[in-house]
Amino acid sequence: MKKSIYIIFTLFTSIIYGQNGTIKGKILDKQSELPLVGASVELLGSETPRGVITDFDGYFTLTDVPVGRKAIRVSYIGYETSTIPDIEV
C-alpha cells in the first residue's frame, strides 16, 4: 500500500519581470507530517518540461512560471503520485 503525500504551497507572481510567477511549497508525508527529501515536483502543460526536486526540509520552488492556470504533479518512490490542478499563477 502506498503512502499519501501532503502538499503545502504558496503562489507568487512577479510583474516586474514580465508575465511570470513562482510556485513555492513544502511536501510532507500525510500521516507523519515529516518532509519528503528529494520528491519530484513537475509543472504540467508547459511547452518545455520543467521540474524541481525538494530540498532537505521538503521545500521546492518553481520559478519563471507563465501566468495562468497551471497544474503540478508530485511523485516520490513508495508514495502515490499526486496532481494539483487549477493553480492560478
Score class of each variant (00 low, 15 high):
Lys3Gln: 11
Ile53Val: 07
Gln31Ser: 14
Phe9His: 15
Ile16Ser: 15
Gly58Tyr: 14
Pro35Ala: 09
Ile5Val: 15
Tyr17Met: 14
Ile84Lys: 03
Thr83Ala: 07
Ile15His: 11
Thr83Asn: 08
Val37Asp: 13
Lys24Phe: 06
Asp86Gln: 13
Thr61Glu: 13
Lys30Gly: 03
Leu11Pro: 05
Glu88Ala: 07
Val89His: 03
Leu43Lys: 00
Gly68Gln: 13
Leu11Trp: 04
Gly51Glu: 09
Val65Leu: 04
Asp57Ser: 13
Glu47Pro: 06
Lys24Arg: 10
Ile15Trp: 02
Lys70Gln: 15
Gly21Val: 03
Phe12Glu: 13
Leu11Met: 10
Ser32Asp: 09
Val67Asp: 12
Thr10Ile: 03
Gln19Cys: 08
Thr13Val: 13
Gly68Arg: 06
Ser40Arg: 08
Asp55Gly: 03
Ser46Met: 10
Met1Lys: 07
Ala71Cys: 04
Glu42Met: 10
Glu47Ala: 05
Val41Met: 02
Gly18Met: 12
Gly78Glu: 13
Leu36Gly: 08
Lys26Asn: 00
Gly45Glu: 07
Lys30Ile: 04
Val74Arg: 09
Leu44Gly: 00
Ile8Lys: 13
Glu33Cys: 01
Ala39His: 05
Ser75Pro: 05
Leu36Tyr: 08
Leu43Met: 07
Gly78Phe: 09
Pro49Ile: 13
Thr48Val: 07
Leu43Trp: 00
Gly58Gln: 08
Asp64Tyr: 03
Ile72Gly: 01
Val52Glu: 00
Pro85Asn: 15
Tyr6Gly: 01
Ala39Lys: 05
Glu80Gln: 12
Glu47Leu: 15
Lys3Glu: 13
Lys26Ser: 00
Ile23Phe: 03
Arg50Leu: 14
Lys26Met: 00
Gly25Pro: 07
Gly45Ala: 01
Ser4Ile: 02
Thr48Tyr: 05
Pro85Gln: 11
Tyr59Val: 06
Leu34Glu: 10
Thr48Gln: 04
Gly18Pro: 11
Pro66Asp: 05
Thr13His: 04
Pro49Met: 11
Lys30Asn: 10
Gln31Gly: 00
Glu80Ala: 11
Gly51His: 11
Lys30Ala: 11
Thr13Leu: 01
Ala39Thr: 10
Ile27Val: 15
Phe9Trp: 06
Gln31Met: 08
Glu80Pro: 05
Glu47Arg: 10
Met1Gly: 15
Thr48Gly: 04
Ile27His: 02
Lys30Ser: 14
Phe12His: 06
Ser46Gly: 09
Lys24Trp: 07
Phe60Val: 05
Ala39Arg: 14
Leu62Ala: 05
Pro85Asp: 06
Arg50Asn: 12
Asp57Arg: 11
Lys24Asp: 10
Ile23Gly: 09
Leu44Tyr: 02
